[in-house]
């Protein structure tokens, strides 16, 4: 995935079955952001792989005061890249039995 300066990673192991997965997002390179990154911590949230849209979550983060509106695009893209990777891997691996 392209390095946007905003990092998104799995916050839990992906068994390949659950639709909602916990992700963790943090800013590795604040200079890449237009607005100030308020918190400096990692933000953990759950994301529904089937129903939800990365850009909508990014907008919720802006509305929750984590990011400036002008950074919604870069945050949305970072989430989108990670979600795409999760889905790509799932297509290629047989889910482990619970």
């Amino acid at each position: 995935a392209e390095d946007t300066g905003v990092r998104v990673e799995l916050a839990e192991e992906d068994d390949g079955l659950k639709t909602s997965i916990a992700l963790k997002l943090w800013v590795e390179d604040p200079r890449r952001l237009k607005g100030k990154y308020r918190d400096g911590g990692a933000i953990e949230f759950t994301f529904d792989l089937e129903k939800e849209v990365p850009e909508a979550v990014a907008q919720e983060m802006v509305e929750s005061g984590f990011f400036h509106e002008s950074d919604a695009k870069i945050v949305g893209k970072s989430i989108r890249d990670r979600v795409a990777l999760i889905k790509w891997r799932r297509e290629r691996t047989v889910p482990r039995a619970p």
Binding site: W26, E28, F45
Partner: peptide, 27 residues
Amino acid sequence: SSAAQVVHSAGRRFIVSPVPESRLREQ
């Protein structure tokens, strides 16, 4: 350290915790 939480009006919970140390990019 206690993780801070922000619940968005749409109901999503955002839990803020320290950035994983090992993942910080070495400047």
